[in-house]
Design a protein around this nucleic acid. Structure first.
Lengths: 364, 364
DNA sequence: ATAACCTTGGAAAGGGCTTTCCCGAGAATA
DNA sequence: TATTCTCGGGAAAGCCCTTTCCAAGGTTAT
């Protein structure tokens, strides 16, 4: 608060006047001014349902313009029992992974003239559940949960229950992530993507790997690690458990995890797989700090293909997820009214090989 | 739509049953079940205003739990005339500049238990005005407009008028950008920042500059260009108008603008200033494609200090804006109720010199 | 000419909640 | 004991809309 330095420029203190709560213009005011009944005014304003004669309609429109009337959407929502709100819960909007998804969601929602309410649930695991409850209280039309589930079964059950209550009361729900909540799900194929990446890297000749595996509890991180291991297995390439380092799913987490690998002191792995691009960037920074060249001394790969990072140097090998599309699909799932049962839309990733994993020239 | 591939898994077609609109639990239901009046139930649910005897309160709580009652916040908003919504309009949430600001806004709003509704206004200039109108209709408590104003005076006036109507009807408004709307404003010091950057670059020995100036119509882009020019003037360094290339405020815009400079064919500038980091990244990509090294052959600087780009290579010289803080400050402005008149909070940028503008070693 | 419509407008009953009154009963004061 | 307070409860009047139902007038069909 202390950092708000108001350079007040208005007339000093209009405070004393006890700020009369501004009398808002209601539809009744419009009706009165136009000399028609409330009913008629309502009909004119929500043109469609039933026609009103031209002369009266004109009078009402005039009154609306004169008074600067705007319908109270909350009241309308109460009266009709229909809301135009859709809630989106994601871990951290400033993370490009989430903000890209959010962009897709917002775009589709806006095209349906729906309001998107966003919340950050990074704070604590309960936050998602609380947000769904809040959306239920708001009688939101739909809610979308974005991001990996964790392995906390209790929290998951509570969330499931809350979502069930939400859908039972007439709302639609979807999530982007693991299909564990009993609602429509957009399923990024983490495992298959990481598997394909591992095979591609092995095909390039890489043999000694390390994985910056993200938090143990996040299923997405696990799936990617698991898929990577499976892909390597197909090439009979071993992945020593000691080479799997956990850490936060962030730039700093990647930096930190990479540090641990360097500190371990053993022979340097030939290729490091970070389970997200953001972590990979941290790893790159750490390697640079150590004076190691990528891919000269060590190769690095990520996951997601964050748009902002497509131009980093060296260009980062990764698995591309159509992030914006994930959001669009989720929005469409939640807005389409044909709903026989929970649907699952798997979305594959695409391996993108770039310079950061170029095979080392055979030692001279 | 075609790309949604529902792998339906529920029982086929529960459709025929004409989906009876789920009867929602109301406070009256709770009151009935608890055997108390509606009034009492309301008082228990909104604990605070007036006390209710323990035994009755318990009965009500039981009923709430049994029925899974959740207050209808819309109805409450209608009854009290107070909403808990705050609207945020920004150009594009997937742009890290905006998403960082949004993170700050959301954090503060959430700590006040307010709902944040987000909209993307990239589509057309009218979008901001429409969104403010929508927020007025929603009786939102506040609205925050994020991003540069344009030089379209007509649109600006319309927006001013809409904002005036919004505040007149009791809402609070703020913007992050130029102080042109007659509302509380958080003012990033674009000009001063660019000025300081120019001086710092000149001090490093750079002399021949080009500017990737962003769209002509965006005031933020103009201010940065203008400030840069002023800073150079202090060092008596000329900036040829031909070296100012306009383009979209995006990665591709930067790439494109850089292309134009290269295509012009004249002597290469020694240093390129892109008015945003995102454009700078595009420029770096273009230079790399041309086989030019940064800073070896040419220096590059940006503006904003986007977090995701702090680790790109070469490390990018830029002007750091505390993006998340911008959002926090705006949120606080709009939530503090002491409001004598429109306030302006200038926020300075900080020049961050990194490797991308290292002075070239004197030609051997 | 009369019956059968359709059109147009309004009164009134919701929708789900808060809040202002008002009332009775017990506690505190005189 | 009489009087004033408090306290806990309810009836009912809002808040701002939408929507059903009804009535009056004008058309068309028989």
């Amino acid at each position: 608060m202390a950092d708000v330095r108001p350079e007040s420029r208005g007339a000093a203190g209009r405070r004393g006047t006890a700020a009369a709560p501004p009398r808002r213009v209601t539809l009744q005011d419009v009706a009165d001014r136009a000399g028609v009944s409330l009913t008629t005014a309502s009909r004119v304003v929500n043109d469609g349902s039933r026609r009103v004669g031209k002369p009266l309609a004109d009078r009402v429109h005039r009154a609306v313009a004169d008074l600067g009337y705007t319908a109270n959407l909350q009241a309308r929502a109460v009266a009709t029992g229909q809301s135009t709100m859709i809630g989106v819960a994601l871990r951290d909007i400033s993370d490009p992974y989430f903000s890209s998804i959010a962009a897709g969601l917002i775009e589709v929602a806006a095209s349906s003239r729906l309001l998107v309410c966003m919340s950050s649930t990074a704070a604590h695991e309960e936050a998602e559940r609380e947000y769904v409850a809040l959306m239920r209280a708001q009688r939101a039309r739909a809610v979308v949960l974005v991001g990996s589930r964790s392995d906390n079964a209790a929290a998951r059950d509570a969330l499931r229950a809350e979502l069930a209550a939400f859908t039972r009361s007439g709302g639609r729900a979807a999530c982007i992530g693991q299909d564990l909540l009993g609602v429509d799900t957009v399923l990024p194929e983490n495992k298959a993507g990481a598997d394909a990446l591992a095979r591609a890297l092995a095909a390039l000749g890489h043999r000694r790997f390390a994985v910056l595996a993200g938090p143990r509890s996040l299923l997405t991180a696990r799936e990617r690690t698991e898929g990577f291991r499976a892909g390597l297995r197909a090439w009979s390439v071993p992945l020593d458990a000691a080479q799997i380092v956990h850490g936060d799913l962030s730039r700093d987490g990647g930096y930190q995890a990479m540090s641990e690998i360097l500190a371990a002191g053993g022979p340097l792995p030939g290729c490091v797989f970070a389970v997200s691009d953001i972590m990979a960037v941290g790893a790159l920074a750490r390697l640079r700090a150590a004076g190691l060249r990528v891919p000269g001394d060590i190769a690095v790969a990520g996951f997601d293909d964050i748009p902002t990072l497509r131009d980093v140097y060296p260009p980062l090998t990764t698995v591309r997820l159509p992030l914006k599309r994930l959001g669009e699909i989720a929005a469409r799932l939640v807005l389409s009214d044909d709903a026989p049962g929970p649907r699952v839309v798997p979305v594959p990733g695409e391996v993108v090989l770039r310079d950061s994993t170029l095979p080392r020239p055979p030692a001279a």
